[in-house]
Design a protein around this nucleic acid. Sequence first.
DNA 1: GGCATTTTTAGCATTACGTCA
DNA 2: ATTGACGTAATGCTAAAAATG
Length: 355
Amino acid sequence: MELALSLGDAPKPFTFLDRTPKVSNKDLGFCMGLGSGSGGSSDDKTVSREGDDGIDRREVIRDEGERRVSSDPPVQLELLPFSPVPRSHPPMQLRFPWLTDNLVSEPGSSDEPGRSGLNVNRFAAVATATEEADDGAALSSPNSTVSSFQMDFCVRNSGRTKRDLEIDAERACSRASDDDENGSTRKKLRLSKDQSAFLEESFKEHSTLNPKQKLALAKQLNLRPRQVEVWFQNRRARTKLKQTEVDCEYLKRCCETLTQENRRLQKELQELRALKTSQPFYMQLPATTLTMCPSCERVATTTTTTTNSSNAATNATATTAQNAAALSLSKARLYPFPQVQPHMHPQAQTHQAAS
DNA sequence: GGCATTTTTAGCATTACGTCA
DNA sequence: ATTGACGTAATGCTAAAAATG
């Protein structure tokens, strides 16, 4: 049994969304609730320096949390595989922003019929996020595409209603503001199923995030970059733990198998010893030994015959044959490793061929 | 280029919160 | 209503890598 778990070492673009054009009409996947924040204030921008230092980062977090509620309808993103696309709703596609080649640069210039690429600035919440990302991107990467990406998603119907998502966002905001009042209390926002599902899908592509990806993901999910970062850290830890459990289970089974095999071999050895004492001709068998070729240090098999027992062997041909068969079977069982091929040194081979 | 210092990041252990039976 | 178990978000610390002077 072998488990292959690729975690993807090198950062690379998420590819599962690259495939979306192929399944564009069938759809992708999960229903994503984006609680839209209110329009970004100038204050928001001043504090969106995630990464400058820990303190500043926490400040950003607080401010972003306050923004989490809006009267704007939340944007729902369907990510459930191949769910039907209601005609009444424009087709959407949630893309990772760093996949610029997939993005629709201008509304209406979509390469896919029926898909309306929406400029992120059309949504107040996203516009806010863009402003933050501009700051963040400017810090993390001067050539970052984060600031200029345009998210291509539209409102879609899903199992959850818009109101549900609004309630989610309101609850999150209410908790956040309560915490802010308390000051010292630890915030713990439970991510929605949709957010988790999207993060999960992202994790399948990348087990680690670069700053650009982190920012973009945070924007899309309306989370703080730190939350995305933490989620990935915890997710990696869970993966590792799970893998450890699997490995442990596997080793346990190996151990059990080997213990059983050991018992069986011990038993067989006892039987062979009993056979040896009861049948003295057992010793007349040719002995197979392993020797090391001195020149190339490879193992070779040699067979020697006990010469002084030839008569006895002749007299007991049948018995010896039986013993030989039993012994060879036993040897095969005793040493279930890849057999050492009889080795002959190249020089010896040429010599033998010549003679 | 080599070195010292600072910053960033991932990993890890742990804590604390939310949910559920 | 309470409680304990569990899952998981969040925190703090460390070491290594990367960036900077």
